[in-house]
Design a protein around this nucleic acid. Structure first.
Lengths: 209, 209, 209, 209
DNA sequence: ACATAAACGAGACGGTACGTCCCGTCTTCCT
DNA sequence: AGGAAGACGGGACGTACCGTCTCGTTTATGT
């Protein structure tokens, strides 16, 4: 999970690591990405802002994307702790459509929060062009929340609200991926109405009943 | 469409522009992106490889992403000319599901062609983080083929194969966006079986009939 | 004579070289050596002070010692031009001892001028440990004035004031080298009395007559 | 004589000092100067090679020049012990010229021994630019052997081979300094013939008798 | 057919950031 | 308490490119 420095020399001793510096680096990285954008966020800039030597960054991370990924994960964990740990779970009121619409509306809100948007766009962009990072991005950031949809859809299958032969991991993409693409690539506006429509189309299909 | 240099001086005279250099720059840019990757593709590198002065690039384009976007468009046009101009159109055999599956399978093939993959990934990544470029990327590269889906879905609506109240521009995202996301973000494998399934789910929905 | 950059790439085009930058670099290098000392004079510091990019230094010189050597040569030429070109020549009044004493006294004065001392000490030190530079230092800076002693001694041989079988190039070291060593290595005080004594000892020997 | 750390903290307790480390540091310093040269000899490199913590060096010495100076002194003492303590003394056969020539020829040999040359050049160079170290270099390394010349010259004065009014401390520079300068600054070749000539010129002068 | 003005190739320039090497200080754990 | 180990904040290294700016050298009309 953690970055293993490219073994060029001997690995640094993690027990001696400065917690203070680690945190300052995370804060600086996130702040800079929000303030000046990812391309103009530099390792030198992060180090300066964090009051840290560049080597301290290079010792523990392999690239600015690595730094940002960990910083963003840490941010998520903090947010989760702040929200009392139960933040992420899809409600099950018995009305699948309503439950999905609610969660997607919350996601729409989140996608508009600059503190979230700047770093996650940066990481997503990097991941598009850097497969290794992309896979880590997915495994660590994207997949866990998606798993909640899998769970909810399985419950719906139990309740008979979703066909039993449907693969939930694929099914969720019908409403999640369109939103993701609109957000990532600016292919269309992102509204509650839009996500509501996605849920309806996905659940009941395009063909007449 | 073409880049208008930021008017810092007098605009260059496009009629005197060297066609030879333009082509050499496109070729160099595409080749470098394939060979060394987008981040290590530099303007200096393109100029050197194209046997062109740097200023000739800065005169006509605003960034390496601009160069690449135009180069990629040109590449697409060439390919279209080679294929006899009629390449892009979604068949209408009367069987909507079959038609969509066929086109998506062709897209899957295309997504695996390195000459296509490297530059389009690069542009997509840049567009994620650079809204202006992202919108041009969408308008010039993404939207035209998507419009073909809109046309085909409208025909299906006429034929009664798709509900009349469905918005085709949104409907197409049900099967196109999941594929796009898997490709962009490595969120899952890309196979014919997968795209076939997407078409089935999208057309008939997840809920039992 | 001029530095030929280490041929790692293609040689830069000297005709396009910026005279203004060259001068600014010389000035900055000399000023810094005087102000902060040679070890704390850095290429980065020279570049900053000269208002020049580091690469402009690396393009034309191989090391800070190279820069300083050329700067010092230029300084010497300027000084020579200022003094009307005739500065360096050893007088020939017919009294060899007196002539040598006078020139050595002038040298003593020069050795105490900080604008001269700082860079020449720096170059001498570098030359002790870097043979290549040392030889250039000698050839370009040390040997030309020494040649004047050779000339004066040969005239003295003609006049019968110096034995004909004496090698002037070695003979001059008898009074020049002791002064040089005292200056370089702080092996003793440097005074007019001292240099006068050196001339006497050298001319008439240590053994009784 | 030994470096007194700049009293930033409490002075270390020299009685508890590790002899083993001290020796290892000397050996490492001398070896590195010979192998990679003085500028590329670093405190970190010495510590690593000696199997010693950096702090152990900083605790007992003030700079790498300090380390090297002590290491070189120690080396000299070892050599002296090996040679039976009587190595340094200028013979007195009654023939002053012959005695001086012999000793200078031995010096020529010594100047060519790489184990001697590398560190002493390094120290000399450092001393040129660092007066404090230069003076210690002279006092500890240069002056003691020079004193032997003073002694020999005084004996020669007693014997009537040198004029009584000659200052031996200056006189010795007539043949020692030229050799020193040729060695330090590469101003000329160093041969037995050259040193022999120096002795002759110095003893009998340049002027005809 | 030729003058002339633009685009062009080349690349020097002032800069920014890179990733690395050491500096000298500091902290930790061991002997 | 000294020592081995090495993380730390920092400064400089030498390199790679950035985007701007001259330089001659084509080239391509427009008289």
């Amino acid at each position: 999970m953690a970055h293993t420095p490219s073994a060029n020399q001997s690995a640094p001793d993690a027990t001696r690591r400065s917690e203070r510096s680690r945190r300052a680096i995370y804060d600086a990285a996130l702040a800079l990405v929000v303030e000046v954008g990812y391309p103009r966020t530099t390792i030198e800039g992060i180090a300066a802002r964090a009051g840290v030597g560049k080597q301290t960054i290079y010792r523990w991370w392999g690239s600015k994307a690595d730094v940002l990924l960990e910083a963003f994960l840490e941010l998520g964990e903090q947010a989760a702790r702040a929200a009392g740990h139960l933040s992420y779970a899809i409600p099950d009121t018995g009305d699948l459509a309503a439950d999905l619409k609610q969660v997607l509306r919350a996601t729409v809100d989140e996608l508009r929060d600059p503190a979230f948007e700047a770093p996650s766009r940066a990481l997503a962009a990097e991941g598009v062009v850097n497969e290794e990072l992309g896979r880590r991005f997915v495994a660590q950031l994207l997949e866990p929340p998606l798993q909640l949809y899998v769970d909810r859809l399985r419950a719906a299958q139990q309740a008979g609200d979703v066909r039993a032969d449907v693969d939930p991991r694929i099914a969720l993409e019908l409403f999640v991926s369109p939103l993701a693409q609109r957000w990532l690539q600016y292919t269309g506006p992102i509204t509650y109405e839009y996500t509501d429509t996605l849920v309806d189309y996905a659940l009941y299909g395009l063909a007449p009943r």
